[in-house]
């Protein structure tokens, strides 16, 4: 493996870790709200969150491009307030990976939280615990395996993201190129042997992430 290939692999992993870390807090909060409460507009929120699962990734990418471009509503605000660009930078890569893997995290985390017996949370309240304490001492520890599985699935999904990334972040060598966008480009250029090396790395990473989540899920049942 060449230094450039290492750089791309490391960058991809770094972006996937970062995006997973970013979506964890809001993902858990949303999963908890979906699992434990009934509220107005819940169905609508559930549908929106799940959209990236079924939309063509390029459509998600296009929406993000329009929102975060310098002329888009969010992009314009970010540039004028904080003077930074999102589109075609590493931030766009994180953004695309985060949006694309968010539904997997929320869905898995939601069912993990739903599996925690609500009677335990109720008893904790009668023992004087407030909502934060109930969440961190009862709900979270009892759901932790399921939550970890959710995080691993989100990470695995982020590793392979292509459609949304290429639209919103492009394929700028050394800046936004990830394993999947580079593989695509190498095949276009006819450099199949290079492409195969990167494909091998992709395969090993995806295998490791999925294998651990499957292993965790099986442990959870015992």
């Amino acid at each position: 493996m060449t230094a450039a290939e290492w750089q791309i692999a490391a960058f991809t992993v770094e972006m996937a870790v970062l995006s997973t870390a970013l979506i964890l807090p809001p993902g858990l909060a949303l999963a908890w709200c979906l699992a434990r409460f009934r509220w107005r507009g819940k169905t609508l929120v559930e549908t929106f969150v799940a959209m990236p699962l079924v939309l063509p990734p390029v459509v998600t990418g296009l929406v993000l491009l329009k929102l975060f471009g310098r002329r888009g509503p969010l992009g314009h605000w970010l540039y004028s307030e904080f003077h930074f660009d999102v589109v075609f930078t590493w931030r766009a890569v994180t953004l695309a990976l985060a949006v694309m893997s968010f539904p997997l995290l929320v869905w898995t985390a939601r069912s993990a939280i739903e599996e925690v017996n609500p009677a335990l949370e109720r008893i904790a309240r009668t023992l004087g615990a407030g909502e934060w304490r109930v969440f961190f001492t009862i709900t979270l520890p009892l759901a932790k395996r399921g939550l970890l599985v959710g995080a691993l699935l989100a990470f695995a999904r982020a590793l392979g993201e292509f459609g949304a990334t290429i639209l919103v972040a492009g394929n700028i060598p050394g800046v936004t190129t990830t394993l999947s966008t580079d593989i695509y480009q190498l095949i276009q250029l006819g450099e199949d042997s290079h492409a195969w090396t990167l494909a091998g790395i992709s395969l090993s990473l995806a295998f490791a992430a999925l294998w651990s989540s499957v292993w965790l899920m099986r442990r959870k049942k015992h």
């Binding site: 017996n117 009677a119 335990l120 109720r122 904790a124 309240r125 009668t126």
Partner: peptide, 20 residues
Amino acid sequence: VPVRQRGIGYVPQELALFPH
């Protein structure tokens, strides 16, 4: 008054011991 401030102990039928 919220549950946690009532000072009322409750032992439900299922007991609900914290398994972890």
